[in-house]
């Protein structure tokens, strides 16, 4: 080590030792272990979204949005979500930015790595579909995968496109 770095080293404050094995450290580790036993954030958001989407359907807001052809996520209290895959039970996550009604896929594309990590390549194209299934109604951007047509892509998961 050079003299200047040695000098920096000599100004080093005391190190913490033994904390990890202390009661406090053990309590923090137990908290982390509890957190690891919970579903991943994307899956938790999926559940929250299902509840919100259900409420939308119950109040009829989702239906109004579809019937009137409003822009993406209008009338949807979830604000819209991004799906990792084109599937009815896909992991859902919220992007960092707000959805641009004119280009809602942009928010999902730009937040892709933050939401889903590097393990899932960012899709080349997306489609906007209503969330399918029992809690249908919410606004979701899905990867278009092999489909060139939004209606066909949404139909493949039992859904319909958002106008």
């Amino acid at each position: 080590m050079n003299d200047d770095l040695r000098r920096v080293s000599r100004a080093r404050p005391p190190e913490i030792q033994g904390w990890a094995a202390s009661d406090e450290g053990r309590a923090v580790l137990d908290g982390v272990l509890r957190e690891t036993r919970r579903p991943s954030p994307a899956k938790r958001r999926n559940r929250i979204f299902a509840i919100v989407a259900g409420a939308v359907l119950a109040t009829g807001a989702g239906g109004v949005a579809v019937a009137n052809g409003l822009p993406f996520s209008d009338g949807d209290p979830s604000g819209g979500m991004c799906a990792r895959t084109l599937s009815a039970d896909a992991d859902l996550s919220q992007p960092n930015e707000k959805f641009d009604p004119a280009d809602p896929a942009k928010a999902c594309a730009e937040s892709w790595t933050v939401m889903f990590g590097d393990g899932t390549p960012r899709p080349a194209s997306f489609v906007a579909c209503r969330h399918p299934g029992e809690d249908a109604g919410g606004s979701v951007i899905y990867p278009a995968e092999r489909f060139a047509d939004a209606a066909a892509a949404c139909a493949s998961i039992g859904s319909r496109p958002i106008p």
Binding site: W19, A20, V32, T36
Partner: peptide, 18 residues
Amino acid sequence: DEGWLEELFRQHADAVLT
């Protein structure tokens, strides 16, 4: 895998906390 996490914590938590 929890054993892996505990070992990681045991070995590095003090340094990260410092």
